[in-house]
Deep mutational scan, measured.
Amino acid sequence: LQLFIKTLTGKTSTVEMEPSDTIENLKAKIQDKEGIPPDQQRLIFAGKQLEDGRTLSDYNIQKESTLHLVL
């Protein structure tokens, strides 16, 4: 599924993920695209901070969801 990652600067990146992927996997993919180390990334979806060990489906993240990346 395609996700949009929006940064505080207003920049939006697109990443392709599976519902079974963990937040950790997602942060690794963001690191590949943006060069931001996972330990500096905080991802927010629906007002919640996402935890590394959980999966996208745990948070009911659907295709074309927008996640907010806070550093």
Rank of each mutant, 00 (worst) to 15 (best):
L1M: 13
L1Y: 11
L1I: 15
L3F: 08
L3H: 01
F4D: 03
F4I: 11
I5M: 02
K6C: 09
L8D: 12
T9Y: 13
G10A: 03
K11N: 10
K11Q: 10
K11M: 10
T12C: 10
T12Q: 07
T12W: 12
S13A: 12
T14A: 09
V15G: 01
V15K: 02
V15A: 03
V15F: 14
M17T: 04
E18N: 13
P19I: 09
S20F: 12
S20P: 03
S20N: 12
S20R: 08
S20Q: 10
S20E: 11
D21Q: 07
T22M: 06
E24D: 09
N25L: 14
N25V: 12
N25W: 10
L26W: 00
K27T: 01
A28I: 13
A28S: 10
K29Y: 08
I30P: 00
Q31D: 05
Q31V: 04
K33A: 12
E34A: 09
E34G: 05
G35M: 05
G35P: 02
I36D: 02
I36R: 03
I36L: 06
P38L: 13
Q40D: 08
R42D: 06
R42I: 15
L43V: 07
I44N: 05
F45P: 00
F45Q: 02
F45D: 01
F45K: 02
F45W: 10
A46N: 15
G47V: 02
K48H: 12
K48D: 06
Q49S: 10
Q49W: 14
L50N: 00
L50E: 00
G53N: 12
G53H: 14
R54K: 12
R54P: 04
T55W: 04
T55Q: 08
T55I: 08
D58H: 12
Y59V: 02
Y59Q: 03
Y59P: 00
N60G: 14
N60T: 05
N60Q: 07
Q62K: 12
Q62L: 11
E64Q: 12
S65A: 11
L67Q: 01
L67T: 01
H68L: 15
H68Q: 10
L69R: 00
L69P: 01
V70C: 07
V70K: 06
L71F: 10
L71D: 06
L71C: 06
